[in-house]
Simulated scan of single mutants.
Amino acid sequence: MKWFSHILAWLVLCIAVPAHAAAPNSVQVTYDIYKGSIKIGEIEEVYTRDKDHYTLSSITKPVGIFAVFKPEKVFVNSRGLVGKQGLKPLHFDHRREQDASKDSSAEFDWEKGELTQIHQEQRDMVALPEGTQDRLSAMYQFMFLPNSATVVDFPMTNGIRLNNYHYAVSRGQKLKTPAGEFSTLYLDDQAKSGERHNEIWLATQRYNLPCKMVITEANGDQLTQVLSKLQIR
């Protein structure tokens, strides 16, 4: 399920910013995933905040013909703290229903400044930069992104490695999705010619939740994730 790894790879954006007092306590979303014009999967996610703690769960399942040949679900979870700079993960795990060799997890020790990444029974301990997110918490860190932001630079772990990312932020066009029409911020990784190009649109009137994301491979192949259902409390 290489497409799933790609989809999540560009859900890795985060930034250390002041917390948004009006951020919701509960979010439930569903995304449709397309390869070209063909729907190949769905992602269902739930974000819950209880005072200064949060939990996140995500389930990805294949649909259509893809479900016949790749009938595997992928489970991703994140939990941690909510503070002045937004989300602060404590634990992350990624699990595939039929291939444990690709499972991974991460443990965040903020007091010691240490990040432990666990994959195939190997534990890799590295320095933990301030503001680090995991690849699931990252998309909900956008709830704390100021409207004045023009760039986003961030570290992110997927439980296997820690990487840094850079996106330019600008005002996006109004975007129609199955979940509604949204005013947006547009994030562009400014990829060079011949590189994979990642784009993401945030719904500015819905707490900057992602409403569309597109990966364009160097060969022109595209994966698109579009918001289809949204419930906020």
Rank of each mutant, 00 (worst) to 15 (best):
T204N: 08
M139V: 12
S101N: 04
L162F: 14
V12M: 01
I59D: 11
Q120T: 10
A21F: 08
R96D: 02
F108S: 06
S170L: 00
A127V: 03
F4V: 15
E44K: 15
R135G: 01
Y31D: 04
H119L: 01
E114C: 01
F92L: 00
T224W: 07
S183F: 08
R96K: 10
L230R: 05
P178T: 09
M125D: 00
C211I: 13
Q122K: 15
E107Q: 12
M125E: 10
P24N: 12
Y47E: 01
D99P: 00
K35R: 13
T48H: 15
H20L: 05
W3K: 02
A16P: 05
T204G: 04
N163Q: 10
G64R: 04
V74Y: 01
T204Y: 06
V63G: 00
Q231E: 04
H119A: 06
F4L: 12
Y31S: 04
E199N: 07
S26L: 07
K88I: 15
E44T: 13
D153M: 04
K73N: 11
Q141M: 09
T224G: 05
K51I: 13
K212A: 13
L90Y: 03
L209R: 03
R171A: 07
K176V: 02
Y186C: 02
L90P: 00
G86S: 13
V46L: 13
F92S: 00
R49G: 06
W3L: 09
L230D: 01
L11R: 10
V126E: 03
L115F: 05
V17I: 06
L187A: 06
P210N: 07
A23Q: 09
V12T: 08
R171L: 03
K88C: 10
M139G: 00
S137P: 07
Q28T: 07
G80L: 06
K112T: 09
K88G: 06
K174I: 02
Y186E: 01
D188V: 03
V63N: 01
P155R: 04
T184D: 09
K229F: 11
T184K: 08
A138Q: 10
F142S: 08
G113S: 12
V63S: 02
G194F: 02
L209D: 01
N219F: 09
G180Q: 05
E72D: 09
Q133D: 02
H53N: 15
